[in-house]
Structures are given as structure tokens and as C-alpha cells.
Amino acid sequence: MFRYIRNRLLGLIVVLLGVTILTFVFSNISSVDPAEAYALRHILNPTPNQIAAIRTEMGMDLPLYRQYINWIGGCLQGDLGTSLITKNPVSADIAHKMPATLKVVMMAFFWVVIFTLPVSILAAVYKDSIFDNIAKFITIVGISIPNFWLGFILLVAFAVNIPLFKVVGYGDFKSLILPSLTIAIPISSMSIRLFRATILSNMNQDFVIYAQARGIPKARIIWGHVVKNSLPPMITVFCQYLGYMIAGSAIVESVFSWPGIGSHLVSAIVGRDLPTINGCVLVIAVIFTLLNLLADLLNIVINPKMLNERGEI
């Protein structure tokens, strides 16, 4: 077990290193000269000399690998550079915007779990029933629906017709409901389909047949054997979805004027604010990687078999 965790952590370091390199490469294939962009933004009619001075100051005259080392050195100390637009440290901006996104994503995650577990279990147990068919139809609509459109539909429905939730703006719990549902519905549709298929395939396992042959009550078989054995892949997928939701928050935040990391990233892209883009991308990728690690560790905790099988790798 410890060997597995050690190997997993070593792998994590390799992956994180790769993530930083890739982020760095992404930002350097840009046709924009950040120094020039910065100069144009902050100095009226900059002279080439002024641009060159800024470039030296930003360390952009150094060879690429030196720039990378400087950048990653900064990252390790929590310094992600300075935003070209707000002139604040990128890390401060992110720290300022992140809580709003996390709030809505956590709420959405709560919905996903709440929707997925009962619906997928019932649909699998009562396969081909009316309930299963309705769930099938709704989830196919759910995976085909553009979530920004879903957001607008919810807005129109609840703002104009049923003023139940606070619609626009950012603040209390009530204002969280519509944005979080908008994120959660497509994701839930995906996970319901996936979980249903997992449960169904587990229902044909030998150990389920053997449990039936021992006269174990049906409810106990479903909960104790089928659902329990479907959890490990589900944990992995749920953690991945959590990462997707943070990355995908941009679209929903734009619909609901939500001041989170996603809309921050989009406005940085529109404004070609490279340090902010890099910072946001790096932070989200690191969160995503850590979530994957979390999923693996959770799986070790709940699945005894994993210790032996994966420990030997």
C-alpha cells in the first residue's frame, strides 16, 4: 500500500512538471508579445526603447528555458506574475475569484450526487420499466443540451414566471441555486447513464448470482454487493467531474454574471492577459490533478483488492 502511494506521488510530480511545461508552452506559442501588449496598455505611444525596457524587466529577453525556470520558481513561491489588466498579482486575483466558483461548483456537485445515486440505481434495478425509459429520455436530452441555453431557460422560467430564486447577481444561498443547477443537470445526465451501466454490468457478476443462491434478500444484494462494487469507478468519475465543473464554470458564470474564476479567465483571454491566463490554467490543472489523486486514494481506502493489485505495479 505504501509502495503504491509512493509510486503514485512520484507519478504526480512527473505529471505536475509536465503540466507546468505544457502551460508554459501554450503561453509561448502566442503571437502576441506580452511586453508590447503591456506597454500599449499602460503607456501612451510607447517607444521601442520603453518596450525593450519592459521586456528586460519582465525577464522576457532571457532564453526560454531560463524564463521557464524563473516562472516555475515564482510559481513555487506562490508568485504567478502580475496581471496586465488589473496590475494585481495574478495569485491575488485568483484567490479573490476562486471562492465564488468553488461555492457554485460544490453546490452543483451536491446536486449531481443527489440526482445520480437514486435515479441510476432505480433505473438499473427496474430496467426497461417506465421509470427507466423516462430517465433514459431525460438524460439524453440532458447530455445534448447546451448548458448556457439551459441557464437562460431557467432564468426566463424563474425570473419571469416563478420569482422563486434570486436570479442574477451574486450573494446568498438563494442566488446559488440556478447557476448550480445549470452546471449540474448536464453532468448528472452523464453520470446517471454511466452509473446505470456500471450497476447493470455488476448485476451479472458471479458474486451476485451466488448471493441470490444463498437466499440473500434483494435489497441487501443491491446495496451490499452491486452498489458497493460500482462505487470505485464512480468515485473516479465524480472527482473528474468536479474538475470539469471548475473548468466549465466559465460558460455558466457568463450567463449568470457570476464573478468567478471562469469568467475571470475568459476576460483575460479576450484581453490577452497572458500571465493571468497561465495562472488560471495552472491552478485549475493542479486542482484537477489533485482531485484525481484524491479519487485514487479514496479507492484504496474502500477497495481492499486494490492494495494488492496496484501495489505490485
Partner: peptide, 9 residues
């Protein structure tokens, strides 16, 4: 390690 949307962005 990158959600696809993030890479595109």
C-alpha cells in the same frame, strides 16, 4: 490533467 475546456481556453 487538463480538463478539455481548459486546454481550449
Amino acid at each position: 490533467s487538463f480538463p478539455p475546456l481548459l486546454v481550449v481556453l
